[in-house]
C-alpha cells in the first residue's frame, strides 16, 4: 500500500479541475474552498456523509449552480457562469439522485432526447420525415438501439417510463446520458435504492461504459463496497470541506474520514 501523501496511482491528462471553489446559499456554506481534479479516463468517486455538499458539487460541474468563488477548468478552458445546456454541449452528461426522466415518454424517446444536441436537420424536413431528416433520424435511432442493447433494455423500449420499476428507470436514465456521447459522465447515486443484484448490474454497466467508450466518470455513492470496487480515486467531502483525496485504499485508512463517518469522541 502507498503512503497517504504519495503521488496518486492513475496518471493522465486532467479533464476537469476544481480550484478553491466555494458555494453558499444565503448564509449557509454548502462548499468552502474545495479543490480536486478529474483525469481523463478515470472513475472518480465523490463521497461523504449526508449534507457534505456532494450533489452541490455535481450541480456546480454541470452548471446548475454557479459558485461565488473559485475556478473551474474543463478541457483546459477556465469557464465562468456556464449554463447547464452549455455544459451538455461541451460534453458533460449526468443522471440525478431522484430519477429525473421525462415521464410522459417511452424509454426509447427518453434516450432519443439525449441525442437532441446531435440532431441538426431543419424542423420542416423533420415534420415531413423525408430526405436528409429521415436519414438523420434513422442514424440516431441506430445509435440509440446500440445503447439499448448495451444496457439490455430491449423489451421495455416502448414502455412509458413511469410504468417501469425503479431499477430499470435508473438504467434508462443512464442510457439517456450515454446517448449524449459525453466526455464526462456525472452519476448522482446511481445505485441508491437498489437491491444487490441490481447494484451488481449497474456496477458492471459503469465499468463497461468506462472501458468500452473510454468515458470519464464522476460518481456519488453511499455504498462503500461499490465505491472501493469501482473507483480509481476518491475525494471525500464533509460539511463542504475536502477532508481526503486519494486511492480507495488511502481514503479507507484515513483517520479524518473514519472520524467523519463514525463521529469523534470529544
Amino acid at each position: 500500500m502507498r503512503a497517504p501523501d504519495g503521488p496518486p496511482v492513475t496518471s493522465g491528462d486532467v479533464l476537469l479541475s476544481i480550484d478553491n471553489v466555494s458555494l453558499s446559499f444565503g448564509g449557509v456554506k454548502a462548499i468552502s474552498g474545495v479543490s480536486f481534479d478529474i483525469r481523463k479516463g478515470e472513475i472518480r468517486a465523490i463521497i461523504g456523509p449526508n449534507g457534505a455538499g456532494k450533489t452541490s458539487m455535481l450541480n456546480i460541474i454541470n452548471g446548475f449552480y454557479h459558485p461565488q468563488q473559485g475556478i473551474i477548468t474543463f478541457k483546459g478552458e477556465a469557464r465562468s457562469k456556464m449554463r447547464p445546456h452549455d455544459a451538455a454541449d461541451g460534453g458533460i452528461a449526468r443522471t440525478f439522485q431522484n430519477v429525473a426522466l421525462f415521464r410522459g415518454m417511452s424509454a426509447l424517446d427518453n434516450i432519443m432526447a439525449g441525442r437532441t444536441l446531435k440532431m441538426k436537420r431543419n424542423m420542416f424536413w423533420q415534420m415531413l420525415r423525408i430526405g436528409p431528416a429521415l436519414a438523420e433520424e434513422v442514424e440516431h435511432r441506430h445509435r440509440v438501439e446500440e445503447i439499448i442493447d448495451f444496457l439490455k433494455i430491449q423489451e421495455i423500449r416502448r414502455t412509458p417510463v413511469s410504468r417501469l420499476p425503479y431499477g430499470l428507470q435508473k438504467r434508462v436514465e443512464l442510457g439517456r446520458a450515454l446517448a449524449m456521447e459525453p466526455e464526462l459522465l456525472l452519476l448522482d447515486e446511481p445505485m441508491a435504492g437498489m437491491n444487490i443484484e441490481e447494484k451488481e448490474d449497474m456496477s458492471r454497466f459503469i465499468l463497461d461504459v468506462n472501458e468500452h467508450y473510454g468515458t470519464t466518470i464522476a460518481l456519488i455513492e453511499h455504498d462503500m463496497g461499490v465505491v472501493m470496487d469501482l473507483s480509481d480515486r476518491v475525494v471525500v467531502l464533509d460539511h463542504g470541506i475536502k477532508i481526503a483525496d486519494g486511492t480507495p485504499q488511502e481514503v479507507k485508512s484515513n483517520q479524518a474520514v473514519i472520524d467523519a463517518y463514525l463521529g469523534v469522541a470529544h
Binding site: A93, F96, F102, A177
Partner: peptide, 15 residues
Amino acid sequence: RAVADDHAAAQSVGI
C-alpha cells in the same frame, strides 16, 4: 415535451 416533464433533466441533455 421534455421540458414539460422535467426542467432540470431537459437542461442536462442540452436543451
